[in-house]
Nucleic acid binder design. Structure first.
Lengths: 139, 139
DNA sequence: CTATAATTGGGAACGATTCCCAAATTGAGA
DNA sequence: TCTCAATTTGGGAATCGTTCCCAATTATAG
């Protein structure tokens, strides 16, 4: 049996409100602490992990980043090609990309090369618009 | 100025000989220790990291595995329609993919989404042919 | 309200990686 | 060849993210 607690509730609410962002466990802890409503880190990790296995949030690890990121996907995650990630190697920013052409490619690779791509895990590395302009870089 | 040392030499030689495998820093340390030619772990991490930035090896983080994997790719990367990499999350194998459609996508993302992809760094994660067959569920 | 099963949270434990710095090694020049 | 400064090494401590342990707390049923 599962009990409903305010920690569970607050956490889910926060994640839902942060839809579109990628948060680390530390971000989550920090947020609640800053609100004066700290949630123990054990609890944060535990809840995050179970939400992942319930399919409510996604967990992914971006290369050369130490900690895992979590992202709310909710219950509407049934239509494929959720979204890909673009990571700028210069400024370090992470972008979300919804693009039919990638989905077509995913299909092509699945059929012609017999490899099923995992969109959540795959990250395209490169250089973003701003950094391409010969702009400055920051981390 | 850089000095040539036998640690650098042995390490590169070993990595080159292991082309196609994915090795963790611990694997590398263990290998040299087992050969009676131990290399300090600080050195292993340091060398590995610089070889990555020279583009001679690649660094990956597989699935929910704690430690990073390294793999020799050599010096052939920077020119011509170089190949992309597909990494199977189940068996860990790395596949090379020569595919015009990806190049077209690269072009599309460059033009339409204003992001220039770096083919050398980008890795598609997913499930390979073999693991798909023998494997289990699927959504 | 009570009993008890689930949940929480602090801190210790852990594994991977980075940092620090003294000792060893390299390579250039005398 | 020998000397010396700059570079590299390696052992161990420190750090970081995450998991584990377990006593205290909380949620729900009766």
């Amino acid at each position: 049996m599962t009990y409903q607690t305010k920690q569970k509730e607050m956490l889910l609410e926060y994640l839902k409100a942060s839809e579109g962002n990628h948060l680390t466990a530390a971000d989550v802890c920090e947020y609640f602490k800053s609100q004066g409503l700290p949630i123990g880190q054990s609890t944060v990790y535990r809840r995050l992990e179970s939400l992942v296995s319930e399919g409510i949030i996604k967990k992914y690890t971006i290369d050369n980043q130490a900690s895992a990121c979590f992202e709310y996907v909710g219950e509407h995650s049934h239509h494929e090609g959720c979204c890909y990630h673009l990571k700028c190697e210069k400024c370090g920013k992470l972008f979300h990309l919804h693009c039919e052409e990638i989905e077509a490619l995913e299909d092509h690779i699945g059929k012609e090369h017999e490899f099923s791509i995992d969109p959540v895990r795959t990250v395209f590395y490169g250089t973003c618009k701003d950094c391409n302009k010969g702009g400055h870089s920051h981390d």
